[in-house]
């Protein structure tokens, strides 16, 4: 394929053709182009290199590039599919697609499982859930007695760990979220149905004729 004019020069490493990304995700070409406007904004906020670094991700999430958060770290790592410490545009679009209202429940359930499987062992272990509870409590500056944390863990595992081996496997997780669908609310971002309105400037850079 040729590379005409100046078009290729402004495309950073990791940039992917919006038409290909649209074909592989829940987004239309226009929506991918609108997401590129968001991506450019986030990826240029600290280091203007067309890649999202962890600091930039934290800045976009918390308005603070130094704020450390267990879950933001996990989300960043899952978005960074190539595991090279940065989120490229293609990774950004493919990962966000899981959060699209039209994406499958199965994709959302799988992503959430990976998110909570902190040590990536293929199971959500009791220690991992405890670590996450402690993180959320410290984030909200709530002091909760150790017995209360134990009681929350007992309740959760008595409901989710149906084979009682002390950890939640993928099948148990799927059954558990089907019984508790509210747990999947965080896996859908209504904004994603509306990205072209949020970032209307994409039309000035659009490569497709019908960008409506």
């Amino acid at each position: 394929m040729g590379c005409f004019g100046s078009k290729c020069l402004k495309e950073p490493p990791g940039y992917e053709n919006p038409a290909i990304l649209a074909a592989e995700t829940a987004f239309s070409v226009s929506e991918v182009e609108a997401l590129y406007e968001l991506f450019k904004k986030i990826s240029s906020s600290v280091i203007d290199d067309g890649l999202i670094h962890k600091e930039e991700f934290q800045l976009a999430l918390f308005r603070n590039s130094k704020r450390e958060n267990l879950f933001a770290d996990r989300v960043f790592d899952l978005f960074d599919v190539k595991r090279n410490g940065v989120i490229e545009f293609g990774e950004f679009v493919r990962s966000l697609s899981v959060f699209h209202p039209n994406s499958s429940f199965e994709d959302k359930v799988n992503f959430a499982f990976k998110l909570y499987d902190l040590r990536q062992t293929g199971f959500i272990e009791r220690e991992e859930v405890e670590q996450m509870i402690v993180a959320i409590l410290s984030e909200s500056e709530m002091e909760v007695a150790a017995e209360v944390i134990e009681a929350i863990l007992d309740k959760t595992f008595s409901e989710a760990d149906t084979n009682m081996d002390g950890r939640i496997d993928h099948q148990e997780w799927t059954a558990y979220v089907l019984k508790n669908p509210s747990l999947m609310k965080i896996m859908t971002l209504p904004y994603l149905k509306d990205v072209t309105t949020c970032f209307p400037s994409f039309v000035f850079n659009s490569e497709v004729e019908d960008a409506s």
Partner: peptide
């Protein structure tokens, strides 16, 4: 007191999981 909240309900309240912040201007 009986515990009524499960761990994942609690966890899903984390700001770090609130990706809608990415879209705030």
């Amino acid at each position: 007191k009986p515990v009524t909240m499960n761990a994942f309900e609690l966890i899903s309240m984390s700001q770090g999981l609130n990706l809608s912040n990415l879209f705030e201007k």
